[in-house]
């Protein structure tokens, strides 16, 4: 410990100090470039925020005529119905896809194909899927069901496939060794291992689907979203607030139901 004084330096994840500063500079540069590209000049932001005071005044208090309230109720029920139906259809379609997308149960080409499908489903926002569904089969809740089903399949089969990859192959081998047919192997060796997670995931996805179904109406795929967009376009901002409050309430209730069910039954 002879040689001069050494100052303590904080440990860092970066291999060298230079790399650290290069990464920081890169991130800062990227953000500044983004700010310029987006046109985020402070004057404009300040101006917008200045206007927000009077705009927020336009949004309050929430109000809806009895007819509008009835319309919120009807379309909200349609949203919930869309979410519920497509949770079921989505899960039913997810099961075979999940089995084919599990590395330990499925041959390589089939595995790649299904993983690809899952990536496609997850990559596109529900609004994009929604607009294409509407163009394909017309306005209305059916397009919404198609959209949410498609999104559900991507989410659900990915998580289910990961669960399937984690199962204990010992019990599968044990069932096989006792002379079971492939169907029996699935039923008694694989299924019991994933059922608990399955129930929880379904309720969780239902909760996410409720959120999605309140939005995709914006592109005409059924549900409360269409009412919201119309109200915005008519500058009927108090009605907008009423609709938003209804959406927040439904989302919170769904989240609560989903949390309770997952805690108690899984």
């Amino acid at each position: 410990m002879a040689a001069g004084s050494r100052t303590w330096e904080r440990p860092t994840v970066f291999p060298r100090r230079g790399v650290k500063w290069a990464v920081y500079a890169g991130v800062v540069g990227f953000v500044i470039w983004s700010g310029v590209g987006v046109g985020a000049d402070p004057a404009r932001i300040a101006g917008g925020l200045g206007r927000s005071g009077s705009l927020v005044g336009d949004f309050l208090p929430p109000s809806a005529t009895p007819r509008q309230a009835q319309r919120i109720l009807d379309k909200m029920l349609e949203s919930v119905a869309m979410a519920t139906v497509s949770t079921l259809t989505g899960i039913v379609l997810s099961v075979p896809i999940a089995f084919m997308a599990a590395e330990n149960l499925s041959p390589k080409p089939l595995y790649a194909l299904n993983r690809g499908f899952i990536s496609v489903s997850r990559a596109f926002n529900a609004i994009i899927v929604g607009i294409i569904a509407v163009k394909a089969i017309g306005f209305g809740p059916l397009a919404g069901v198609l959209t949410i089903t498609f999104k559900t399949v991507g989410f659900f089969s990915k998580l289910l496939a990961e669960d399937l990859e984690d199962i204990d192959m010992g019990s599968v081998d044990a069932v096989r060794a006792s002379g079971a047919s492939p169907v029996q192997i699935l039923l008694y060796g694989v299924v019991p291992q994933i059922v608990p997670r399955f129930a929880g995931l379904s309720v969780y996805r239902w909760d996410i689907n409720i959120r999605t179904s309140t939005i995709i109406g914006i592109v005409g795929a059924g549900g409360i979203g269409s009412v919201l967009l119309t109200a915005f376009n008519r500058y009927d901002y108090r009605y907008v607030t009423a609709i938003l409050l209804a959406i927040v309430a439904v989302v919170l209730v769904a989240e609560g139901v989903s949390a309770v069910v997952r805690r108690r039954y899984t």
Binding site: A40, L55, R211, L229, I247
Partner: peptide
């Protein structure tokens, strides 16, 4: 968390005018 991005965007387009700034906010 309960209000979707696209709804926030509707709101900020009114505030900042249409364009990417409203989207970023």
């Amino acid at each position: 968390r309960s209000v979707n991005t696209i709804v926030w965007a509707l709101f900020f387009v009114v505030l900042f005018g249409s364009g990417p700034l409203a989207g970023a906010v």
